[in-house]
Design a binder for these strands. Structure first.
Lengths: 198, 198
DNA sequence: CCTCACATACTAACTAGTTGGTATGTTCAG
DNA sequence: CTGAACATACCAACTAGTTAGTATGTGAGG
């Protein structure tokens, strides 16, 4: 029943938002009453924290496996992009709740989640730094900003990508990896562009 | 007073979310009473629609100016990235409300906003198609997915970028333009990567 | 110059319903 | 007969929205 309450609430939070979803809505969707809800969860906020913890904990674990694998920086970055995009298929609703409803966590919980979120980002940053140091990536790349760019492309996909549509998640991951790694410009145009220093 | 109510509510919606912000909160922040609120706005939802219309309307207008300018596809794409990033400085809160609270608009309003949002995206897609056709951009680029990538990088910036921090908005726009146009990989590594067809 | 009709920009008090949370049961398996 | 897993009934606080009324301005006819 705990799982049913949690999974049902994810769908409701995604559709209506955390505040607009009442505990009554959640227990009705699960076919129980409020007594049951407060037997399993201390508060509505505690349930939201559970959802956040599950989501970011799982991603960090899977990112760690990629980090510790034997692969080039490029391959690791590509794997992380794949991890995030393919994850939409299974955890799209959780992700959307994660991105949108964090401000409804109380401060202590919000900080714990924020730290894990930042750890995920810093791990990408580190991979990028390694790749720049080894010459695999361009010298001009700023690892911190590049990490934000990668997370932007992938996280934004949660807002629009439909894994049941015409493009499979694996294909989208390839498209985005290619675009981020190789850029949009054709070879002829490249030398004209770059970061200016004025 | 109408402006004060609107601008105050944007800040509250950003901090607490639309549903968690009561009309009472809004009028207290503006120093008036609820009667005044309902004198200027038909409903709480109508106020949210106003915020959405203002935001997307302004962006579409400024995008149109870029589209109609005489410039290369690359320059136009760079300008649009700049438009969105520099906009964070002035309309960060509006943008965050726009991205997060659209599901609280009633259907008719949501559809109107969605159409304008899609128009903005399709305009980028068109610029990308032009660039691919003219050879300015790589043949392999898929304009629709590339548009989502660009919007991902820029829109995500609303979540983390602080224009008052050490990196000015104009600089960030340059960094992101460079990264999206030229990619992350160094020249030596490029030929190994690409979209496979298996 | 005055005043009457009307408009603008509000306020205080209210309604009808919903909220998260709690205190107190009841049921049934081990 | 115990305790885990639920249900019932309730509350104080809060919700969006409404109502009737009012202070201040404004413009035109006499």
């Amino acid at each position: 029943m705990k799982t049913k309450l949690k999974e049902g609430s994810i769908r409701l939070f995604e559709e209506k938002g955390f505040s607009a979803t009442s505990v009554q809505d959640i227990v009705e969707a699960a076919g129980v009453t409020k007594g049951t809800f407060y037997y399993y969860f201390q508060s509505k906020e505690q349930l939201l924290m559970d959802i956040h913890s599950d989501y970011i904990g799982d991603l960090l674990m899977r990112q760690e496996a990629i980090r510790q694998s034997e692969a080039s920086s490029r391959e690791k970055i590509t794997s992380i992009i794949g991890l995030l995009i393919v994850d939409i298929e299974q955890h799209g609703p959780s992700g959307r709740v994660f991105f949108r409803e964090m401000r409804h966590l109380k401060q202590a919980n919000a900080e714990a989640v924020k730290r894990k979120r930042e750890q995920f980002r810093m791990n990408i940053e580190e991979l990028l730094r390694d790749g720049v140091a080894s010459g695999e990536f361009r010298r001009q790349i700023q690892p911190d900003m590049a990490a934000f760019a990668i997370l932007g492309v992938t996280n934004w996909s949660y807002q629009w990508f439909n894994p049941a549509g015409s493009i499979p998640a694996e294909k989208l991951a390839e498209i985005f990896s290619d675009m981020l790694l190789n850029g949009i410009m054709s070879e002829g145009g490249k030398e004209h562009v770059g970061i200016s220093n004025h």
